[in-house]
Computed example of a mutant assay.
Amino acid sequence: MKLNQTTLDKLEAILEESGYIVRYERGTFQSGYCILEQKKVVVLNKFLQLEGRINTMLDLIPQLKVEFDALTADSQKLYEEVLAMAALKQAEE
């Protein structure tokens, strides 16, 4: 997966299509992000560089309740890719 702005935009689109609000804020996040489950808000550390933002999103998306049917075809494909990468990463650990 390429680490560029387009990839980040596509990852953000997965969350937005599932009803999540993605915000970049200042804070002391040990993991680089904070999830407010009840309000469906994801807050990422605004000081992360592009690569850090993408890697954080890749770690975050498999943990969330994403509505697969609400996603566009492109987002569904990327979501499946993200899940496969997460499963591979977990298998390695």
Rank of each mutant, 00 (worst) to 15 (best):
M1A: 09
M1W: 06
M1V: 06
K2Y: 06
K2H: 06
L3I: 07
L3Y: 03
L3Q: 02
Q5L: 05
Q5Y: 03
Q5M: 04
T6E: 10
T7D: 01
L8D: 02
L8Q: 02
D9R: 10
D9L: 09
K10V: 07
E12K: 07
A13S: 06
A13E: 03
I14E: 00
I14M: 02
L15K: 02
L15F: 04
E16G: 05
E17A: 11
E17G: 08
S18H: 04
S18D: 04
G19A: 06
G19H: 04
Y20W: 03
Y20M: 00
Y20K: 01
V22F: 07
R23T: 01
R23N: 08
R23A: 09
Y24C: 05
R26N: 08
R26Q: 11
R26V: 01
R26E: 12
G27L: 10
G27F: 08
T28Q: 10
T28L: 10
F29I: 11
F29R: 06
G32D: 01
G32V: 11
Y33T: 07
C34K: 13
I35F: 06
L36W: 09
E37C: 03
E37A: 09
E37Q: 08
E37D: 11
Q38T: 13
Q38C: 07
K39M: 07
K39L: 07
K40S: 06
K40V: 05
V42I: 12
V42S: 01
V43S: 10
L44A: 01
N45K: 06
K46M: 09
K46V: 00
K46R: 14
F47N: 10
L48E: 04
L48K: 05
Q49V: 11
L50G: 04
L50N: 01
L50V: 09
L50K: 02
L50I: 12
L50R: 03
G52I: 09
G52W: 01
R53M: 12
I54A: 00
I54L: 03
N55A: 07
N55R: 11
N55M: 08
T56C: 04
T56Y: 02
M57D: 02
L58G: 03
L58I: 12
L58N: 09
D59P: 00
D59W: 06
I61Q: 01
P62D: 07
P62E: 08
P62Q: 11
Q63N: 10
L64S: 04
L64F: 01
E67P: 03
F68Y: 13
D69H: 13
D69T: 15
D69R: 15
A70L: 09
A70I: 05
L71T: 15
L71V: 14
L71H: 08
L71G: 08
T72M: 04
T72N: 07
A73C: 09
A73R: 13
D74S: 15
D74Q: 15
K77N: 08
K77V: 11
L78N: 08
L78D: 05
Y79F: 15
Y79N: 05
Y79G: 06
Y79C: 07
E80A: 15
E80D: 12
E80K: 15
E81S: 12
V82N: 09
V82A: 13
V82I: 15
L83E: 10
L83F: 14
L83A: 12
L83P: 11
A87S: 14
A87Y: 12
L88C: 12
L88R: 12
K89D: 12
K89T: 14
K89Q: 14
Q90V: 03
A91S: 15
A91M: 14
A91P: 00
E92D: 13
E93Y: 13
E93K: 15
